[in-house]
């Protein structure tokens, strides 16, 4: 890279890190959401179960 390697790779590496970071942020935001839903779902199931048994 003609002596400019640090600058060229420095910028490319940071760019791809930002892109990867953004994608990871979205996917774990989605994962926490799914955990929430399954949690709510379990609560609903237990409620319906208690109602039917009691």
């Amino acid at each position: 890279m003609g002596g400019y390697g640090l600058y060229v790779w420095g910028s490319y590496v940071v760019t791809f890190m930002c892109i990867a970071g953004e994608i990871l942020l979205i996917s774990n935001r989605r994962r926490t959401l799914e955990k929430q839903y399954s949690h709510i779902e379990d609560l609903d199931n237990n409620e319906t179960k208690n109602e039917t048994t009691s």
Partner: peptide, 19 residues
Amino acid sequence: PTDFQQGEAYRIIFIHVPA
């Protein structure tokens, strides 16, 4: 090609300008 004036450094343009 490598830029006659800036050598290889100009290759940063490929992400700087789009960004």
